[in-house]
Amino acid sequence: MIELNDVHKSFGQNEVLKGITASVQKGEVVCIVGPSGSGKSTILRCINGLESYDRGEISVEGLKVDRDAPSIVKVRTQVSMVFQRFNLFPHRTVLENVVEGPLYVKKEPRAQVLERGRALLAQVGLAEKADAHPPQLSGGQQQRVAIARALAMQPKAILFDEPTSALDPELVGDVLGVMRKLADDGMTMVVVTHEMGFARDVADRVLFIDGGVIVEQGPAKSVLNQPQHARTQDFLRRVLHPL
């Protein structure tokens, strides 16, 4: 349902994506791993048009992703995003954060949306925080609200941009737990992450990216357990055994 065909992207002189071709099927969980600066996050940001791309084509459900075209709204309502730094709206309550998109972008009936919002908060284990404001919550709780906000749009896929990188280590598990449940329920997910355990257990496929190209890809267990490429082996050794 998400197709990338020879996607190139430069920031000034610096070419960060050098021809990415990949696809994500419905119901699939794809983890993107790789060293920092390799272009992982840029791929996600291009998929929902937060970033433009210079060459190639990206499409979602057959709809071309073009951030300057009106159709970008349709893409974004189908593909939600969860950010590294949560980016919740601090001036609105937790429940208001969750229902903002359905109410004001999709213009769904209020009562129905509020009910769904509360159900989603219960699903991520934060039903009792509905009326709190985001700054009052821990990082892990904020990220679970952000996931509920993404789900409230009833998207066909969710993009996760290093969702646990800004969290204290003891809070990572709660967020990964929610994501694992989503994967089990059949949600299509693209996850940029450094959590190799999550990638190995939950992902259907892993893409290893370095220097703006896909170095290696395949079923999660084979890429992570028996990497073929020297750069993948080197990266995994350093991530798994930092000492």
Binding site: L50, V73, T77, N87, E100, G101, V105
Partner: peptide
């Protein structure tokens, strides 16, 4: 990040201004 979050749920320029 606030503006990106607003865009990511499909808000246009004016709605982002007004709501976020």
């Amino acid at each position: 990040g606030q503006i990106e979050a607003a865009q990511s749920i499909g808000m246009g320029w004016w709605l982002t201004m007004r709501r976020v």
